[in-house]
Design a protein around this nucleic acid. Structure first.
Lengths: 344, 344
DNA sequence: GTTTGACTTGAAAATATTTTCAGAAAACGA
DNA sequence: TCGTTTTCTGAAAATATTTTCAAGTCAAAC
């Protein structure tokens, strides 16, 4: 494969000149530039990223560290990042921490060693550790947290307003006549778990509905947990008349548990989920859902990262908060309408 | 960050020795080795991948080029590759061709320029192009095609037996009393589209059921297409009594179309899908599904790649074919049982 | 005619590693 | 004890690029 020297020889210039044409770091005579560009074309020259990154201590790769690659929500997010990376001519190293802080740390080390230009991460916990962070800071590698907030200073964050998402979902249920609303939410150690519970509580409070701790269940973000927690809720006495589920996989488990109890949505129980996914728009399910702009989330995080890369002097931390939207479908029909329908 | 020279100085040896300890390329005295290892620990040394890859013309990164990152099937596949890569201490560059051959080509060039150690790809077409291929061959970068076959010689492939998967699905429907079975399948330009149609035909032929071209519809792998093709099938006269869907997204569309026609599964029409996904096990849907070992597919492809990397002299092309399994659930109940149930 | 300055260009250093070649020391056989 | 082999180690080259520094050319200004 042709290297910069071959191009230089072919064009009859020095390698410095070729480098300058390549990077636009200094003026070169227009004819010379043309000649060099022609030579690059002719030899099908592609700069060696290894040599570049060795010299500049920086690659054209960004790291993307996801907490659960199985979740379709993160798929969309990845796609958003990927699209923007392609556009900026960066490649993407994908890492999956599997919600495991140890594995997360391991991958952060890998990304650091790889000299990534920057990193976008869905953190598994609220602190990344000062040691790691200062390494990145020292080499001026920007980090953007996405979907979940971190406490560390000078880590940007791109988030969705989870309190509001949950608040709107619960308010909607209350408006539609539901009063005894159970909530199954994610772990309290991440903001997506805590904030959605917070929104649930706020909505109840604002409606003057007394808060019942028995109706709040939390656990890890997966279908089995959703099923277990929903089972617990369904066995309460008096029974819940609606369930709010704080994540797409939890919703899946909830649907299963409801079905296992021989209950119908929404006739016997209303259900509102979080995260749009393939199946939520299925007309046979017709799930009312808090939709998150996952693709936009990824894109925005990537854009913010590239801002840092293009202008490394920005040091102000920024938090971008996107708005969720409530997509109202059949699973949360007004209680009275629902009864009329059942009688008909 | 400490480099090899710092380690050498700290341990009182030459950099050659450190390099040897690092790579195990030659014997070094046991005490010396210990000392060097201690120094690496002490200085928290991590080798610079750029320098390595510059020198060896090979990185510790493998490329993974997916055709549709939105499809949950590929998620599992990615996860399988990722797990195996982590295990071998390789990183993963993720690329998404979006079923676009041009973008696929672009990404292949990127991977080549990045000096990836190898590539795993879900090809969008059956030929990758001799030009590209010979570049990879020349530098001895192995390529493994996964999920879809390619015609090019010396590209390994890891596949699922699609003919068999479809064959079993259709045979099952026939056994359960269905005779007028419609099929919606993927594009005829990829093996996952063609082979599943082939399995459908074989099963019909073997059962002596005449082949009716009107019952076969194909299009791209997405939900909108699934809906459209199913709509077409449902408007046939006489009506179909079962539908076979050749991919998870197509199934999603099919479910929607069936619901829109006010039909019930399986009471009015049976449905068998392809690809296990989150929703197929939902008890309220209970979809009979041809399950593909997506995770295993990814893992196997990665393993095959690492075999090549560890032993570059293997030049025999290999095709690994994994078996799908038919998971029988409620959506394809025997016709008679179903009628009994309805009467009850 | 000389000087100044702007504009281009090239030579060479620097980046961190692997690998080849050669040499030193140790072990071994006679 | 002397040669011979083996084992281990170090010096230096090589990898492809960016970047600094110096120098060359040319035009304009004095």
């Amino acid at each position: 494969m042709a290297n910069i020297q071959d191009v230089a020889k072919h064009a009859g210039v020095s390698i410095s000149t070729v480098s300058r044409v390549l990077n636009g770091t200094a003026k070169v005579n227009i004819d010379v530039r043309r000649r060099v560009e022609a030579s690059m074309q002719a030899l099908n020259y592609m700069p060696n990223p290894a040599a570049r990154s060795l010299r500049t201590n920086r690659s054209r790769i960004i790291g993307l560290l996801i907490s659960d690659i199985q979740n379709p929500f993160f798929m969309r997010l990845i796609q958003g990042v990927e699209e923007e990376a392609l556009h900026h001519e960066y490649s993407l190293i994908l890492c999956n921490s599997n919600e495991n802080p140890q594995r997360e740390q391991q991958y952060l080390d890998v990304l650091y060693a790889e000299r990534v230009a920057g990193a976008i991460i869905v953190p598994t916990r609220e602190r990344l550790g000062e040691a790691t962070l200062s390494k990145f800071r020292e080499r001026q590698i920007p980090i953007v947290a996405v979907d979940r907030r971190v406490k560390d200073k000078d880590v940007d964050a791109v988030l969705v307003d989870n309190v509001r998402g949950a608040f709107e979902a619960i308010s909607h249920l209350i408006t539609n006549g539901y009063r005894r609303i159970g909530a199954i939410t994610g772990p309290m150690t991440v903001t997506t778990g805590r904030d959605r519970l917070e929104g649930y509580r706020q909505a109840l409070f604002e409606a003057g509905i007394p808060h019942d701790p028995a109706l709040e269940r939390s656990g890890t973000f997966d279908a089995a947990t959703g099923r277990r927690l929903t089972d617990e809720l369904l066995e309460l006495d008096p029974p819940v008349d609606a369930i709010f589920s704080g994540n797409n996989l939890l919703t899946l488990g909830a649907l299963d548990a409801i079905h296992a109890h021989n209950l119908q949505v929404p006739n016997d129980i209303a259900l509102v989920g979080y995260d749009e996914t393939y199946w939520s728009s299925l007309s046979s399910l017709s799930l009312t859902t808090v939709m998150q702009p996952a693709y936009e989330l990824g894109r925005t995080a990537a854009l913010r990262l590239f801002q840092h890369l293009q202008n490394p002097s920005i040091h102000t931390r920024q938090e971008v908060v996107l708005a969720p939207t409530l997509e109202i479908r059949g699973s949360s029909l007004p209680k009275d309408v629902r009864q009329l329908k059942a009688q008909a």
